[in-house]
Write a protein that binds this DNA or RNA. Structure first.
Length: 401
DNA sequence: CGAGATTCATGTGAAGTATACCTTTAGGCTTAA
DNA sequence: AAGCCTAAAGGTATACTTCACATGAATCTCGTA
């Protein structure tokens, strides 16, 4: 006990490594966003009419992960909100991430979530979807106002629930007389609009904005800018920023990843009682991020998903080489179900689950034909070999195996 | 030898089922006039 | 008679199952050169 007290004492005595950790977190909206002046300007231009209480065009934002779509959008929105508040303009902006499982991944849930923003409670199930529409519309139509709805990662939603809901959304305006509603769709998938009903397409993307990936130098700028607020200057060793940027640029210029790398590297260093961030901390950070990402994702998934993943991990450890096939997974999965006393799902369902795991990026699955020997998914792990073991361990523990 | 038929192991779509939850409604009970 | 509560009826969303059919290249079959 005494030792622990001492430990905490020491901890507090120690000069903290971080000056401010928030600025490195992914939900932080910085004041200054390097290399996105153009996009900010354009977006501001498109949305400026709201301040005159005119409905701005619907906007569609494209760009790969970590190119600043969300940050820029949120930034512009907060600016608009500020002005609106100052002038007491009845403008309401709602941000909604459609990817979050069990939050907004169906039309119904998206609406329910939207409604919740207005303080309307919609039950998790039971109501007809168009009834929810009516309730929602009726409520927002009671007051004259301008509404901007931001649908982040909208491609995920449409992939799951079809593009009908987009059509419904675009039609909302004609049902309302007090309210003008604009939609900002954000998509990681550059080809997203290709397979969409042309009617919807034209009305939903009246304006489009493309975010190109950052290059390594730009990411360095971003990192420097943020670390200025996050750390004292002497903490970051030579080459650290460069290395973070290089790691992140390796894929396609994912700034979010770069920032996360830097933050976690800081945390690693802090835990090692160091007062500086060195190159090796970045490598540790990379591994930890990968592991945490999967773990976090996995823990929030239903047991069945966990079991399926565990089965995949199992095989990949035993069968070091070569791809994994659905049938093998299903066999192992079933045996695990037995030992956890859980009713196994059908192979049909497990097949879908595997497809979903693929969507999450934990695994890479693709359908191949093995000719005479049938047809199956060829599955490879999408996570580094080094983390497999610890993930597997954590999974087993979580399932009390 | 090569074109077409077969075959395997599973993908995939549609339709059905179970469950959990919703609103509506009708009946019964209580209460107050 | 009005008001309130309850339980049944009728409806929906979601996760899952069942059924049936689709796939597509390795392999087989068999007619032909």
């Amino acid at each position: 006990m005494v030792e622990l007290t001492q430990f905490f004492q020491d901890y507090l005595q120690k000069k903290p490594l971080f000056k401010s950790k928030v600025v490195l977190q992914s939900n932080y909206t910085p004041e200054y966003i390097p290399h996105r002046e153009e996009q900010i300007q354009t977006m501001a231009g498109i949305l400026a009419p709201v301040l005159r209480m005119e409905k701005p065009s619907n906007l569609f934002v494209y760009g790969k992960v970590g190119t600043g779509k969300t940050v820029v959008t949120k930034y512009v929105m907060s600016q608009i909100e500020n002005v609106a508040k100052e002038r007491r303009l009845p403008i309401k902006i709602i941000y909604l991430n459609c990817k979050l499982k069990r939050v907004a991944d169906t039309e119904y849930r998206m609406l329910a979530h939207l409604a919740k923003e207005f303080g309307i409670d919609i039950p998790p199930t039971g109501l007809p979807t168009d009834e929810v529409y009516k309730t929602f519309l009726k409520y927002i139509n009671t007051k004259k106002q301008l509404l901007i709805i931001i649908l982040d990662e909208i491609d995920q939603l449409v992939k799951k629930s079809g593009d009908e809901l987009l059509y419904n959304l675009t039609r909302i305006n004609s049902e309302l007389n007090n309210v003008e509603l604009s939609i900002i769709g954000i998509s990681n998938d550059l080809l997203f609009m290709e397979n969409i009903d042309p009617r919807v397409k034209s009305s939903l993307s009246e304006e489009e904005l493309v975010f190109p990936p950052y290059n390594a130098v730009q990411i360095q700028d971003i990192l420097r800018e943020r670390s200025r607020f996050a750390f004292d200057s002497e903490i970051i060793r030579e080459g650290v920023i460069e290395k973070c940027a290089a790691y992140a640029a390796r894929e396609h210029g994912d700034a979010r990843r770069a920032l996360e790398l830097l933050r976690v590297a800081g945390e690693m260093a802090e835990r090692k009682n160091k007062y500086s961030i060195e190159l090796e901390d970045i490598d540790d950070a990379e591994e930890k991020i990968e592991r945490d990402k999967v773990l976090d994702l996995v823990h929030t998934q239903p047991k069945q998903f966990q079991l399926t993943l565990l089965s995949i991990l199992d095989i990949s450890q035993n069968v070091t080489e070569g791809p994994i096939f659905t049938g093998d997974i299903y066999e192992i999965y079933k045996s695990y179900c037995k030992s956890v006393a859980l009713k196994p799902l059908t192979q049909r369902r497990v097949s879908d689950i595997i497809a979903e795991l693929d969507m999450c990026g934990i695994i890479n699955a693709r359908v191949i034909s093995k000719g005479r020997y049938g047809r199956t998914r060829e599955i490879r792990l999408g996570i580094p070999e080094s983390t497999v073991h610890s993930i597997r361990g954590a999974l087993k523990e979580g399932l009390s195996l």
